[in-house]
C-alpha cells in the first residue's frame, strides 16, 4: 500500500440543526484502492459523500485530496482536481441527450477540439451506443445508472465515489458492473470509494471496508475482518444478534 493517502478525511462533523449526520468521522483512501463504505440506513454515508465532494460545508473537520485541503471548496474545483461521483437517487440532466450529458462531464478536462474522442470512448466503454441520442428523461433506472457512471468517468477522475451504484441491478447486470469497476480500477487507475448495500459487490471487489453507524465510524478492515466484527454485527442486526452469530 502506498504511504500517502489519496483522500484523507479528518474528524469531519456535519449537522443539520440538531441532527448530527456525520460525527467526527475520519477515514483514508489510498491510491489504487477500492474501499467500501457501508452502514445501516441513515448512518450518514451519503452525507459524508456530499461533504467530501463540496455539496455540503462541514461544521468541523478537514478533507484533504491529493495533498490539497479541499474543505469548503466549490464542487467544480474538486471535480477539476480529479474527484467525481454518482448519486444514490439518479440525478440525470433530464432534458439532455445521453451524448450531451457525457459531453458536459468531458468538458472538465477537454475543449471543443478533443472532447468528442473522450465522449466516444466513454460511450463505448459504458455500452451506451444504442441510446446515445436518447433524452435522459425517457430512460429507465438501469440505463440512467450507466449514464451517471459515464458522466462521472468523462470528467477523467482519479477518484470516483459511487453511491449505491449496484442497487436495483439484477445478477447479470451486477456481475458485469463489478467487472467494469475492476477494469476501471486496473486499466484506468481509478481509485474507488463505494457506498453499497449489495454485500455481494462489497465483499467481491472491495479491498478494504469502512463502517459508519449513526454518523460515527465504528470499524475499518478487510472484508473478512468486517464480517466478523462485533460492533458491525451489532449495528446491523442489534445487540442480541451478536450471541446468535457467535
Amino acid at each position: 500500500m502506498e504511504n500517502q493517502p489519496m483522500l484523507k478525511v479528518t474528524n469531519l462533523t456535519k449537522k443539520f440543526g440538531n441532527l448530527v449526520a456525520v460525527n467526527n468521522a475520519s477515514m483514508e483512501v489510498y491510491p489504487g484502492e477500492i474501499v467500501g463504505l457501508i452502514g445501516p440506513n441513515g448512518a450518514g454515508k451519503t452525507t459524508l459523500f456530499n461533504a467530501i465532494t463540496g455539496l455540503y460545508k462541514p461544521e468541523n473537520g478537514k478533507v484533504v485530496f491529493k495533498g490539497v485541503n479541499i474543505t469548503g471548496f466549490l464542487p467544480h474545483k474538486i471535480c477539476k482536481l480529479g474527484m467525481s461521483r454518482t448519486f444514490q437517487v439518479t440525478r440525470a440532466f433530464l432534458h439532455m441527450t445521453v451524448e450531451d450529458t457525457v459531453r458536459v462531464g468531458a468538458y472538465n478536462r477537454r475543449n471543443e477540439k478533443n472532447v468528442l474522442a473522450k465522449v466516444d470512448e466513454i460511450i463505448e466503454l459504458c455500452e451506451l451506443g444504442d441510446i446515445r441520442t436518447r433524452v435522459c428523461g425517457d430512460l429507465g433506472l438501469a440505463q440512467l445508472r450507466k449514464v451517471e457512471l459515464a458522466r462521472a468517468l468523462a470528467t477523467e477522475p482519479e477518484m470516483l465515489l459511487l453511491d449505491e451504484a449496484g442497487a436495483g441491478l439484477n445478477a447479470t447486470e451486477l456481475s458485469a458492473f463489478m467487472t467494469l469497476l475492476q477494469s476501471l480500477n486496473k486499466d484506468y487507475h481509478i481509485t474507488f470509494c463505494v457506498v453499497e448495500h449489495v454485500m455481494q459487490m462489497v465483499m467481491g471487489i472491495c479491498q478494504r471496508i469502512v463502517v459508519l453507524d449513526s454518523g460515527e465510524l465504528i470499524a475499518s478492515g478487510t472484508p473478512s475482518e468486517i464480517s466478523h466484527n462485533q460492533r458491525v454485527i451489532e449495528a446491523y442486526l442489534g445487540k442480541r444478534a451478536v450471541n446468535y452469530v457467535n
Binding site: 465532494t53 463540496g54 455539496l55 466549490l74 464542487p75 467544480h76 474538486i78 471535480c79 477539476k80 467525481s84 461521483r85 448519486f87 440525478r91 440525470a92 440532466f93 433530464l94 432534458h95 439532455m96 450531451d100 450529458t101 459531453r103 458536459v104 462531464g105 468538458y107 472538465n108 478536462r109 458522466r151 462521472a152 468523462a154 470528467t155
Partner: peptide, 18 residues
Amino acid sequence: KAMRAASDDLDVASLMGV
C-alpha cells in the same frame, strides 16, 4: 451545454466541473 445542464440540476452540473 453547461447552461442547460445547470438548468436541469445545478448541484450535479457543478460536481461535473461546471
